[in-house]
Design a protein around this nucleic acid. Structure first.
Length: 763
DNA sequence: TAGCTAGCAGTTTTT
DNA sequence: CTGCTAGCTA
């Protein structure tokens, strides 16, 4: 029977027929899968008593001794272990970061291992920052710790960047240590420029990333409707060469290049290698770990196989298999959950494989898991408004309430209703620099100044729709190449400046900018002061003083420059250009300019976020919205058990975010196209004794979404009015409020104006 | 060159 | 179901 048919059959089974799990049923029928389950007898159990070790620690370092006394025996076992290879299987909410940081501190303060001899790898900047902070917190303020000492504490990518910079063989690959890092957007622009300049025929250009991956991994060129092969292979080839020529690396390159270098010559022999979230490693990252932790180094990895929800990003279970097979590797576990109350945790544990279920509750029984049926998402949002207001009255802080969603699209309806109903809220998802046009542009300006041959950054500066003066395209590139022919300039920015002076002599502000870019490195030698750089580039003029967002744009840019300067001061580089390059590398890696302080969300409000974004977080009250079959697990054309198992773990992650109250909702009339009838069939695995079912709330008079029309009748500019602008010519008003007028100018696209500044004329 | 149609993919997101 | 687009047709 095919997977699809089997599931149809399984789903049709009555919902009430409980204690029945279609996935287990399927697994029982299917060919046994290779498994990542660690056999029980591979675990070393903790000893009864660590009093002596604790006493030893307290004698040397009282503060650390006191901290360690709070740990349980499983945690202490991992901290004190003398084994040189340890894989710690940490169940959800069992304090894995605590163990990781305390082990680092123990090794450092008691075993006298210098921090500079440790490599600590995480997947996110947030995790890296947290570990650094917890370590710094242990130092008395009299003993300042050099940032130099924590050089190899960071994300896989930032440590890779550090290693690449330091490696003696880098020039063999055609790179210099001042290479810059392309984020996703930069890489897209880069590839599009290559397609243009090399006149390549490439189909599905907005799916380039996927297509390149398919081609690299499976040599597949045809995609979707394509009948003929296009120039994709050439594009890959050219981009490889161009990256070398321009000293550029993308995120994937960082890992593969460091692996290549370390394979030739190991440049670093750390005494200890630590990994957080071990289950998320992909094959290349595993390789990096192997290169780093040779025979002379010890290795300590923490992870939770039950929380592996990033397989779609390339994480692999091979890593578990190889470590289980390795008999020198000691397996330890952290089974005690301190977060979730008893009944909720038992319910969540029903979603795990029998053998992998090592979870033990430490808290009291608490509330039952609630399964609530709503008519649709609109209905649910109003229900939430009511519930949340009551909870808040009872003293539950807004930020202790979270609503989780499978997809991000589900969030926007809640946003608009909460806004109307005065529920404070915050959507938690990493914002992209692209959402801040001024900062996005600032990054290009600085990169163009720092890498005088990086044509992409230069072009982006001058062809930006918001702050540029040129139109991007084939014509511009051709004109520039034509101008360039036969002449020899020192570098690309020099050539481009000359080109601008020749072809666009009227664009005074931008001509000045070009000159400033050309002289930027020299200027940096004098000063890296933020306000000085701000006026050096004349941002006051360039950021379009008539724009609605002028004030916030200038403030954002000033703040960003400030962050850069702070970073440079803390890193104490000798060469200011190198320092600025390092800072910009950090901006690329983190995706924002807050590279010192990080993104601190302090705003009070109900949290709205996807389950993926909720990993690692906890809340008092958690609501999972719209958990119909078809959404959880999310329907997919391709997939199979691997996908379904991951979706099941995703539901597990959702349920284990809650400390005290967990409510899952499903909709009778879901608005999602892929939703099916009835709640997620994964929930059938949970015995009815652990679930409290709540009947459908009656739909109110109208559950139809209300059209909200925020158009302001007092504004003289009305929707669809034809207008003209001195620069952009004729256009049509798309939207008009007291604060902002948005118009469409055809080939110039959409522009927004502040009514008090707008130089618009009625037609 | 515009219009039509068939076919397929779509989620999650960090660096 | 919707959105995208390659490739065909007039």
């Amino acid at each position: 029977m095919s997977l699809k048919n089997l599931h149809r059959k399984l789903r049709s089974t009555e919902f009430e027929s409980n204690e029945f799990d279609p996935i287990s049923a399927f697994e029982a029928q299917a060919v046994p899968q290779q498994s990542i389950i660690i056999p029980k007898d591979r675990f070393t159990e903790p000893s009864e008593n660590y009093a002596q070790d604790l006493h030893g620690v307290s004698k040397t370092n009282i503060k650390l001794g006191q901290a360690l006394e709070k740990l349980n025996n499983y945690q202490l076992q991992a901290v004190f272990s003398e084994d040189s290879k340890v894989l710690l299987s940490a169940m959800v909410g069992s304090g894995k970061t605590t163990v990781l940081t305390h082990k680092i501190l123990y090794l450092h303060f008691i075993k006298a291992i210098p921090l500079s001899k440790m490599v600590v790898l995480t997947f996110t900047n947030k995790a890296a920052r947290e570990i650094r902070e917890r370590i710094l917190a242990f130092y008395e303020d009299s003993v300042a710790i050099q940032s130099e000492e924590l050089r190899y504490f960071g994300t896989f990518h930032s440590v890779a960047r550090q290693l690449i910079k330091e490696h003696p063989l880098l020039d063999k690959l055609g790179f210099t240590p001042s290479f810059s890092i392309m984020d996703k957007e930069a890489k897209e622009e880069f590839l599009h420029r290559l397609i243009l300049t090399h006149q390549l025929d490439v189909k599905y250009q907005n799916k380039l990333d996927q297509r390149l991956k398919l081609y690299r991994n499976e040599k597949q060129i045809l995609y979707a409707n394509m009948k003929k092969e296009d120039d994709l292979p050439q594009l890959l080839d050219i981009s490889r060469k161009e990256k070398q020529a321009n000293n550029l690396m993308d995120f994937d390159d960082l890992i593969s290049i460091v692996n290549w270098l370390l394979k030739q010559e190991s440049s670093l022999e750390p005494q200890w290698v630590f990994v957080d979230e071990f289950q998320d490693c992909n094959t290349e990252q595993v390789q990096l770990l192997n290169y780093l932790s040779g025979d002379s180094s010890s290795f300590f990895a923490v992870g939770d196989p039950n929380q592996s929800i990033y397989a779609w990003r390339g994480s692999t279970d091979q890593i578990f298999e190889s470590y289980i097979a390795d008999s020198t590797c000691h397996m330890m576990r952290l089974p005690l959950n301190y977060r979730t109350s008893g009944q909720l945790l038992s319910a969540a544990a029903c979603l795990l494989n029998e053998q992998q279920n090592d979870l033990q509750a430490t808290r009291s029984e608490g509330n039952k898991l609630r399964l609530v049926n709503h008519f649709d998402d609109n209905q649910e949002a109003f229900y939430c408004v009511k519930q949340f207001k009551e909870l808040n009255k009872k003293g539950i802080a807004w930020e202790q309430i979270a609503i989780l969603f499978r997809t991000r699209q589900q969030i926007s309806l809640f946003e608009s209703i909460f806004r109307k109903e005065d529920i404070p809220f915050e959507v938690i998802s990493k914002s992209s620099l692209k959402d801040y046009p001024a900062l996005f542009w600032l990054k290009k300006v600085l990169l163009a100044g720092l890498q005088p041959n990086d044509l992409d950054s230069i072009l982006s500066v001058f062809t930006s729709t918001d702050f540029g003066c040129l139109k991007n395209g084939k014509a511009l590139l051709n004109a520039f190449h034509k101008f360039n022919q036969g002449k020899s300039f020192d570098n690309t920015i020099g050539a481009f400046t000359a080109f601008l002076h020749f072809k666009y002599p009227k664009e005074e502000a931008h001509l000045k900018l070009a000159n400033s870019l050309e002289a930027f490195q020299n200027h940096l030698l004098n000063t890296t002061k933020d306000l000085d750089l701000y006026s050096y580039f004349n941002f006051d003029q360039l950021l379009k003083p008539t724009s609605v967002h002028y004030k916030e744009n200038t403030e954002e840019v000033k703040r960003a420059l400030q962050e850069l300067e702070l970073y440079i001061q803390e890193q104490s580089f000798a060469d200011p250009i190198e320092a600025y390059q390092a800072a910009m590398g950090q901006v690329s890696l983190e995706g924002h300019f807050q590279i010192n302080t990080g993104l601190r969300k302090t705003k009070a409000g109900v949290r709205l976020l996807t389950i993926h974004a909720a990993k690692g977080l906890e809340f008092d009250h958690v609501y999972l919205s719209g958990a119909n079959s078809g959404l959880i697990p999310l329907n997919r054309k391709k997939g199979g058990t691997k996908h379904l198992q991951e979706e099941k773990r995703l539901l597990f992650v959702a349920l284990t975010r809650a400390k005290n109250h967990m409510e899952i909702s499903w909709h009778s009339q879901s608005t999602a196209w892929n939703a099916e009838e009835g709640p997620s069939y994964f929930l059938n695995a949970i015995p009815s004794a652990l679930i409290e079912r709540i009947e459908a709330t009656q739909p109110e008079i109208s559950s139809k979404k209300q059209e909200d029309n925020p158009e302001d009748s007092s504004s003289p500019w009305k929707k669809d009015m034809r207008i003209s602008h001195p620069k952009y010519g004729e256009g049509i008003v798309i939207n008009s409020t007291l604060k902002e007028i948005t118009c469409d100018f055809g080939k110039f696209g959409e522009k927004s104006f502040a009514p008090q500044w707008a130089t618009l004329k009625k037609l």
